[in-house]
Amino acid sequence: MRPGLTIGEFAALTHLSVRTLRRYHEAGLLEPAAVDRFTGYRYYSADQIPPAQVIHRLRELDVPLAEVKSILATDDPKRRTELIAGHLQRLEEQLDRTRSAVVSLRQLLRPDPADLKVELRSVPARTVAAVSDGVTLPDVLPWYAAAMAELDAVFPPAEHTGPPGGRYANELFTEGAGAVTVFRPVRSPHRAGRIEVLELPAIDLAVAVHHGPHDDIDVTYGRLGAWVVEHALAVDGPIYETYLVGPRDTDVPDAWRTEIGWPVFRVTPD
């Protein structure tokens, strides 16, 4: 009587190739139930089919072999779930980055500069409620979400006198870290927690509107920057964003509207 399933039979049942099964054996990831000491033939038991299928699914998700081994080695279901969840989170983040890159590339492959409408605007000085901090570029989105949530908690909609905005130091883009401010124009700005009362200076901006989700907002940034340089208007200073319609207004990303304001030489008001 045979000691179990041959490696070929086991490969057919688990959809793991013979070559892969041999590699997993050598790595100590999935050892055969028995190995014939004379022929070297590997034999597997039916009980090994479920763990082999788990390995197959994990490898389809690009879980590294070392992590697969850790997942299979632990007897703690909670720990096993944490290991798998951690990898899934990394995959989701990678998918988001890939999706953003695809959207941007599609926009860049069919540019239409004539579609970009730029307005030269003199923005008066404003007193706003704001949260400011030094932030690294990868942390901007979570930091922004937390700061806006804090502003919204202190200043309800009845207090709002305009859409929220952000001010981003050039170093954030050139060095990967810099000063960031998010703010709300409100009736009675006051301090609370991280919130401060901030005097935004009068400034002249070249303004363009980015339509839709922020996956390809860098394309609009680039087109606006090129327009400013072409018209010899650029000056040093932070970039301003105004969130006319955003995730706090609608859960339909295609409806989002973000104004990007690039500092320019003073223009004559209309």
Rank of each mutant, 00 (worst) to 15 (best):
I195R: 00
V245H: 02
V68K: 11
R257Y: 00
P201F: 00
P111I: 13
T6A: 06
H210Y: 12
R80F: 04
F173H: 00
S70D: 12
D215I: 00
R191E: 15
F155Y: 08
L72C: 09
G176P: 04
S122Y: 01
E159M: 14
G40E: 04
R79P: 03
A208H: 00
P269Y: 05
T258G: 01
A147E: 13
P111V: 13
P263Y: 02
S104W: 03
R121K: 06
A177D: 13
G237I: 01
W143I: 14
Y168P: 04
F10Y: 07
H15S: 14
I239W: 06
H190S: 01
L83F: 07
A179M: 14
E171Y: 02
P113E: 08
R90L: 13
F265P: 08
T268D: 05
Y44R: 03
V209I: 14
G178H: 10
E92Q: 07
L141D: 15
G162C: 05
R37Y: 11
R90F: 09
Y43C: 09
A226R: 06
T81V: 12
V54L: 14
V123E: 06
L137W: 15
D249A: 04
P201L: 00
G40A: 05
F10S: 07
V245T: 12
G178C: 12
G212F: 07
D236R: 12
L198C: 10
R90E: 11
P156G: 01
A33C: 03
S70P: 03
I84Y: 12
P50R: 05
P157H: 09
V102G: 07
P189S: 14
L205V: 09
A52N: 11
G4R: 11
E67M: 11
V63C: 02
D270S: 12
P142K: 06
G222N: 08
A33W: 02
G40H: 03
D47H: 15
S45G: 15
F10I: 07
E159H: 13
E199A: 15
G162L: 03
L105T: 07
R42H: 02
L172A: 09
P156F: 01
V35R: 04
V118R: 12
V197P: 03
D249P: 04
D62V: 13
A73F: 12
E92T: 06
G212A: 04
L120T: 13
A130L: 01
R19L: 06
T220A: 11
V197F: 03
A33L: 02
E150A: 15
W227V: 01
Q107Y: 07
A46V: 13
A179N: 14
R42V: 01
P238Y: 03
P253W: 04
A208K: 00
I203S: 05
A46M: 05
Y24G: 09
L108Q: 12
V209C: 12
L172I: 09
E119I: 02
D139E: 15
V182R: 04
